[in-house]
Amino acid sequence: MKVRIDTGCIMKMLPHRYPFLLIDRVTELEPGKSAVGIKNVTINEPFFQGHFPGEPIVPGVLLLESLAQLTAVMYGAAALPEGTDFANLNEESFSGIDLAGKVGYLAEIRNVKFKSLVRPGDTLELHAVKKIQMGLLSQIQVFARVDGQVVVEGIITVSQKA
């Protein structure tokens, strides 16, 4: 379903903060199943100081982190009470619910390819689709596009907090 989950709500769902909150908006969401989000890359990103001087390129591991954070939002949404209106989420939808504290960890990355460079000015369109789950572990197919072209793709395994 189409949604518009902005940073206010995202920060209710993720414990990540500056300089490590690497997702700006979630635009499509099927709680626990799939999600699409956006990360805008600007020259103000702190890591461009060193990666690399004179040649700003988003580190590949941070592209994966963006995708992992999208995955965490996808899972967090599944933990919201039944009847939650996802199309109109606001910060009050989270009152009394601690989702950020329940975000799990990255357990494995697999078959990841970085297919082209991501630079300031690029808008990353992030995609995550859950494949299978076994116990606390789930496998998620992820990819990101810039201008319709895939820049990173792979499979990540995430664990839920026991």
Partner: peptide, 19 residues
């Protein structure tokens, strides 16, 4: 346990049996 998830994927691909 991470491998066990991977094995269940393999079993499914091979025999269409889900664990």
């Amino acid at each position: 346990s991470i491998d066990s998830l991977e094995l269940s994927v393999g079993v499914f691909n091979l025999y269409q049996i889900s664990l």
